[in-house]
Design a protein around this nucleic acid. Structure first.
Length: 565
RNA sequence: GCGCGAGUAGUCUAGUGGUAGGACAACGGCUUUCCGAGCCGUUAGCCCGGGUUCGAAUCCCGGCUCGCGCACCA
């Protein structure tokens, strides 16, 4: 199966970054074809998760200032403290090790760990002493501005750029839930040991949707579309269920309908993109596996030669992020929700008399008045208030009491967010593996990349049967027609015709257009289908429209013309 | 980060201290040429740095990358 990796490099899908300088693990360059495939994937994703949702796309910086990651929790939970044994060289995550050996929850700071180590005289399993604990942060850090600058980090996920714009976004949607906001872009994690090619990168591509919803309404009107979809669901106890999404929600395996909706939609999207259904499953995070922000989380996993790999994470992040940013930025990141009918309540209100308060309490009068207005307890002949920590008794003569009807039109809530987060590099790779095939034609082995037609980076290749005039200029003429029609087109007149067909089979080009002798008699060309190697003859005039129909569907080319040969 | 193994044209591979060889691919040409045909020709390589040696692809040290195992993967 690893034959594919050789092909991907040789034909321009994926290259090792910094290759001429010896390379660096965890980085990958997209060659022309890989870039094209990933772009197709992004566009398909937009179609599913932006255009066909109440959702928008934004773009925010890849560098974030420190405040953002302190609030998001990444500054602390992203930093692990490591301890290394002096004699056996083993490295442990300090918090895991201490919890396991001593049953103590640890603050993740080097100082705290150092203290625990000395207080309990904690040793390595082999009996050796630990070296001084060290921090390692999985975020790339940088400084912003001249001199020492301000500390900044390369974002470990695109999501934070969305949360911190919440006020503007809510405004854009006129405060009406639910709504979705997405971002497609790069994110960075300073992995300790990146491996397995494109599976674990230090700089990678994400497509994330943050779908904001009312906490009491985790449903989606289009869920019925995926009601009866069956896809393997592995729950947090490693039990596999082969039931419909509707049943999974009813049985409480999936926390709620909205999560199930995005599981269904994700499955639909991945299959449309070229992931094989039988090599796809969803797996629920175990309790100790969930990120610091997640309430429930399901991963889409694709089976590849590396085993089952996580390609999408669908998490219910609750109100974690907005609440945190609300606290740290002191901005109101809630939304006002109107009730269908206002609630009417009779209330007694305390009205402070400033003319009395002023002369008596002087400087404190204003604060006392505020406290009186907000007072909601029993009203007697006097009211006791806490003002700046001081207990003050306010006599009846300092306020009036009026009885009014109060209409409550709604309430402020912090929305919950459901986040489908896609690892585009892994999905791209999984598509390539799932599409890769070997075929025997006339006793000769050929490599075929059976990409979905709408995903292919080169959609059509124009091949003159003979690489000489007038075939070559006719080919160029047809290339121009196709390029003008918006197709990604290549021309190839090098080598025998069979060799050229194989070349385009290998990179996944779904259709080849061949100019032959008959072209000059009746203005026709042949279209060859990659998967069946069948050919049909069509008029040049009709070629763009026919290709357009073929490229968005899986229709048989024989619907469009006479079979050739 | 630790341990083991590997690194020779674009790709695969031969070469174990003494002139780096082959296959495929690519490129040019010939051949009225529809599924990797043939013939002629061309381009192109010892991962990087240091050491040992008269001489290193080959031996030694360090780095980088790749594979496998451990650890890590919010």
């Amino acid at each position: 199966m690893r034959d594919i990796n050789e092909m991907l490099v040789r034909r321009g899908y994926l290259w090792q970054s910094f290759e001429i300088y010896g390379g660096m693990a965890g980085f990958v360059d997209y060659g022309p074809l890989g870039n094209g495939l990933r772009r197709s994937l992004e566009n398909l994703w937009r179609e599913y998760f932006v255009i066909n949702e109440r959702a928008i796309e934004i773009d925010t910086p890849t560098i974030g200032i420190e405040d953002v990651f302190i609030a998001s929790g990444h500054a602390s939970s992203f930093t692990d403290v490591a301890i290394e044994c002096e004699s056996c060289g083993k490295i442990f995550r300090a918090d895991h090790y201490i919890k396991e050996k001593l049953g103590i929850e640890t603050e993740e700071t080097a100082e705290f760990v150092r203290e625990v180590l000395s207080t309990y005289n904690l040793k390595c399993e082999c009996g050796g002493r630990f070296k001084d604990p060290e921090n390692f942060n999985l975020m790339f850090s940088t400084t912003i501005g001249p001199g020492k600058g301000k500390p900044g980090y390369l974002r470990p996920e695109t999501a934070q750029g969305i949360f911190i714009n919440f006020k503007r976004i809510a405004d854009y949607f006129r405060d009406k839930l639910p709504f979705g906001v997405c971002q497609i872009g790069r994110a960075y994690r300073n992995e300790i040991s990146p491996r397995q090619g494109v599976i674990r990168l230090r700089e990678f591509n994400q497509a994330e949707l943050e779908y904001f919803t009312h906490p009491g309404n985790k449903k989606h009107p289009l869920f019925k579309k995926y009601n009866n979809l069956k896809i393997p669901l592995v729950d947090k106890n490693d039990v596999e269920h082969n039931i419909t999404l509707r049943e999974a929600v009813e049985k409480g395996i999936i926390a709620h309908e909205l999560l199930a909706y995005f599981i269904g939609k994700t499955a639909d999207f991945l299959i449309r993109a070229g992931i094989k259904k039988e090599l796809l499953r969803f797996r629920q995070h175990k309790d100790d596996e969930r990120a610091h922000y997640a309430v429930d989380c399901w991963d889409a996993e694709a089976k590849t030669s590396y085993g089952w790999i996580e390609i999408v994470g669908i998490a219910d992040r609750g109100d974690y992020d907005l609440t945190r940013h609300k606290k740290y930025s002191k901005e109101d990141l809630s939304i006002f929700i109107s009730y269908d009918n206002p609630i009417i309540r009779k209330v007694k209100k305390v009205i402070p008399k400033m003319s009395e308060l002023g002369p008596t309490f002087r400087g404190k009068a204003k604060k006392i008045a505020n406290a009186l207005e907000n007072y909601s307890g029993e009203i007697g002949e006097s009211i006791e208030l806490d003002v700046d920590g001081e207990r003050i008794k306010v006599e009846r003569k300092f306020f009036d009491v009026v009885e009014t009807e109060e209409k409550i039109f709604g309430e402020r809530i912090v929305p919950h967010v459901i986040e489908p987060s896609f690892g585009l590099d892994r999905i791209t790779y999984a598509i390539l593996e799932h599409s890769f095939d070997k075929d025997v034609v006339d006793g000769e082995e050929r490599y075929v990349l059976r990409l979905k037609r709408w995903m292919a980076p080169v959609q059509v290749a124009v091949l003159p049967l003979l690489s000489k005039e007038p075939f070559t200029s006719k080919a160029e003429e047809i290339v121009q027609i196709l390029k003008n029609s918006g197709f990604f087109t290549e021309r190839d007149d090098s080598g025998s015709i069979g060799r050229r067909y194989r070349r385009y089979d290998e990179i996944g080009t779904p259709f080849c257009v061949t100019i032959d002798h008959q072209t000059f008699e009746d203005s026709t060309v042949t279209i060859r289908d990659r998967d069946t190697t069948e050919q049909v003859r069509v008029k040049i005039d009709e070629l763009p429209n026919i290709l357009r129909s073929l490229l968005v569907s899986e229709r048989d080319i024989k619907e469009f013309g006479e079979r050739f040969r």
